[in-house]
Amino acid sequence: MPPTTAELVPTLSLGDLVNRCEVVLAGLDAPQRAARDALHDVLDGQVSKELIEDAALVASELIANALQHTPGALLISVDVYEFGAAMGVVDCGRDMTAIPDRPANSSTDAPTVAAAGRGLFIINELATKWSVAPMENGKIVIAVLTLPAGAR
């Protein structure tokens, strides 16, 4: 089982862990749909609908990146805290340097927008923080979405 986000991103104060779920993605025909469904189930009533939609988009992008750049996405874990939510996608890729510190292309201008790298740009824009950590059989890419003050 992957560590909780609080263990992986200790610089954020998200409050107490309220709920946690994991979805095995390996072998699924539609892993992004399974992750989105799980996110809606675990976050419904806990956070705003806008945060749920942002989390679903971030999860889809994390999984798409794992499917495109590694041997495959294995699992998504979702941690719900008092002040936000976090998700981590575990994949089989071991190359930690394959993920840049920030998106290479942030252009939205049609002539200069890159064909690749938009997923990381979306994650970077929607997540409060994201990071990568090694795991025993690959790595986990974590994205944290915090609630605005007073949103709960």
Rank of each mutant, 00 (worst) to 15 (best):
G138D: 03
D79M: 02
V58K: 03
P111G: 11
L17H: 05
A114Q: 08
L57F: 07
E82S: 12
T128Y: 02
V23E: 12
E136Y: 05
A115K: 13
A35T: 03
A34N: 05
V42E: 05
I142L: 09
N65Y: 08
P10E: 07
R102E: 14
M96H: 10
T146E: 14
E22I: 09
A85D: 01
Q32D: 11
A133F: 01
A104T: 13
L25S: 03
S106R: 14
I140P: 00
P134E: 04
G84I: 05
L120T: 02
G72N: 08
C92W: 13
H40E: 14
I142C: 09
S60F: 03
P71D: 12
S60Y: 04
V9F: 05
F121Y: 14
A66F: 06
F83I: 06
R94C: 08
G84W: 00
D16C: 07
S77W: 06
V24L: 15
D29V: 12
Q46I: 03
E61V: 06
G27Y: 08
V80L: 02
K139C: 03
I99R: 01
G138S: 06
L28H: 12
D37E: 14
I63W: 00
V132S: 05
I63G: 00
A114S: 15
L51G: 06
Q68G: 12
S106D: 10
G72S: 06
N105Y: 04
A64D: 11
G93S: 05
D95Q: 14
S131E: 15
D37W: 08
T70A: 10
W130R: 01
T11I: 12
L17C: 06
D101N: 13
L43N: 08
D79Y: 01
A35C: 07
R118T: 10
N124Q: 14
V89Y: 01
V144H: 00
L12C: 04
K129P: 06
V132F: 07
V80F: 04
L12S: 05
L25A: 04
A127V: 05
T4R: 00
E50F: 09
S60E: 11
V42C: 04
A133N: 09
H69C: 07
N124D: 15
I140F: 00
T5G: 01
Q46H: 13
P100T: 12
C21L: 13
A34C: 09
A73G: 11
V89N: 00
N65C: 09
L39R: 03
N137W: 08
P31L: 01
S107D: 13
V89H: 04
C92Y: 14
T70M: 10
L17Q: 02
V80R: 02
A35W: 02
E61R: 00
N124G: 12
A35P: 05
A35Y: 01
T70R: 09
H69G: 06
E125L: 11
N105G: 07
E61D: 11
D41H: 12
L51M: 11
E7F: 03
Q32T: 15
R118G: 13
A104K: 13
P10W: 00
C21R: 12
V9Y: 00
D91P: 03
A110T: 14
V78H: 00
C21F: 07
D109P: 02
M135P: 00
R20Q: 07
R20G: 01
P111C: 10
H40P: 08
M87S: 04
M1A: 15
D41L: 11
V90H: 02
P3D: 14
D16R: 14
A116V: 11
G119P: 02
A26G: 09
L120W: 06
G27D: 04
L145K: 02
